[in-house]
């Protein structure tokens, strides 16, 4: 299971990577915005994408849209982990095809639950 963690704050990437490791996911890579993430996704054979929303360059929602529009990536499970808390935004993310949505600040238990739920549905 190879996971890409996208967040513009290195501390948040580190927290998520640590939590993922505790859940048994040790194969993770990082990107600091959508622009860096997209080429990595296209070549890196990732199984799962965890992304923030608010990032310079290319935002998480734009990344999600780009992923869904790409023939080779469109089925990639995407979990949004973000401080964006407007109802309209959550609806927009759902419409763009997000698989899970976690609002910051979040707990390890919530992250675990959402990830498990995503893979339950896929299996």
């Amino acid at each position: 299971m190879k996971i890409l963690v996208v967040d513009d704050f290195s501390t948040m990437r580190r927290i998520i990577k640590n939590l993922l490791r505790d859940l048994g996911f040790t194969n993770t890579e990082e990107a600091d915005d959508g622009q860096t993430a997209l080429p990595m996704l296209k070549t890196g054979k990732f199984d799962f994408l965890v992304t923030d929303w608010n990032m310079p360059g290319m935002t998480g929602i734009e990344l999600l849209q780009a992923v869904r529009a790409d023939e080779s990536l469109k089925n990639l499970p995407v979990l949004m982990v973000t401080a964006e808390a407007k109802r309209d935004q959550i609806v927009a993310a759902a419409q763009a095809g997000v698989n899970g949505y976690v609002v910051k600040p979040f707990t390890a238990a919530v992250l675990k639950e959402k990830i498990e739920k995503i893979f339950e549905r896929i299996d």
Binding site: W53, N54, M55, T59, G60, I61, E62, T82, A83, E84, A85, K86, R87, D88, Q89, I90, A92, Y101, V102, V103, K104, F106, V110
Partner: peptide
């Protein structure tokens, strides 16, 4: 579509979720 960052004073606002349960 642009990020707005964390929302403050979410209590009593209907346009904003205040917890993961709301999401």
């Amino acid at each position: 579509m642009k990020g707005q960052g964390p929302q403050m004073n979410t209590e009593g606002r209907s346009d904003v979720v205040s917890s993961q349960d709301d999401v």
